[in-house]
């Protein structure tokens, strides 16, 4: 312990340890971005190949729900940043509050996603080969809308479920990690000299929000 900071013995001091941890987190985030990058590249390739199909698929997504979720996540990024800030100025109680709001935002996001997903399942929309075209056309017919034109609409929803699903898993992971920070914050682990965990989880959360900011137009607003 140096000035209330648990410094591991292979580091010179707290700032040395903090800088190293932060670099590690950024490197890890680079791997996350590259992993999503693979999906984005696949999306771009097939969007170029089948623009009409992507446009037809996107009409089944409710952009208003996507937009609300975007706002929710942007707001949660703000509260996350506040959580770090309150740790820095030694106001752990406020930090706990900010982190709690962040978790709540994550939960709202997931609940909205849940309703979006179940609505699609109800319509017969599943990824890829599992898409039930008959059921979907039946629903469209009842709503007085024209039947599906694309023969490979399943692929769009393959991308939709893979991309938003992988993102959703990360949101859940983020919520777990923020809860862990919240617990440690309540325990009084953090102080202006030591808040590495909050900072690291914060970086993770911002990047996950950023990924959503790209996903939203690509999935909801395309076409």
């Amino acid at each position: 312990m140096i000035n209330g900071v648990p410094v591991q013995e292979h580091y010179r001091d707290a700032s040395h340890q903090f800088a190293s941890a932060k670099e590690g987190i950024w490197l890890f985030m680079a791997t996350e971005i590259l992993m999503f990058g693979g999906l984005f590249v696949g999306y771009l390739i097939f969007h170029m190949k089948y623009p009409e199909m992507f446009a037809e698929g996107a009409q089944f997504l409710d952009w208003r729900l996507g937009f609300i979720n975007t706002l929710v996540l942007i707001f949660s990024s703000l509260t996350m940043a506040l959580g770090i800030y309150f740790c820095q100025i030694n106001q752990p109680k406020k930090a706990v509050g900010a982190l709690a709001v962040t978790i709540l935002c994550g939960a709202i996001f997931m609940v909205i996603k849940y309703f979006e997903y179940t609505h699609k399942f109800h319509m017969g929309i599943f990824p890829g080969r599992m898409l039930d075209l008959e059921m979907l056309n039946h629903h469209l017919h009842e709503m007085g809308k024209p039947a599906i034109v694309s023969t490979n609409l399943g692929m769009y929803f393959g991308f939709y479920f893979c991309m938003s699903g992988l993102h959703g898993i990360h949101v859940i992971l983020g919520m777990c990690m923020i809860s862990w920070c919240l617990y440690r914050c309540m325990r009084g682990d953090f102080n202006p000299n030591y808040y590495t965990a909050v900072e690291g989880v914060g970086i993770f959360w911002h990047i996950i929000d950023l990924v959503w900011i790209f996903l939203f137009p690509l999935l909801y607003l395309v076409g």
Partner: peptide, 27 residues
């Protein structure tokens, strides 16, 4: 990470048939 997403997509392809590598769906 690229291997990671590739293998995940392959697993998805096998479980849900997402269609990205499947010519039947234009993949």
């Amino acid at each position: 990470p690229i291997l990671a997403i590739t293998l995940l997509l392959l697993a998805m392809e096998r479980t849900f048939g997402v269609g990205i590598f499947d010519p039947k769906l234009g993949g």
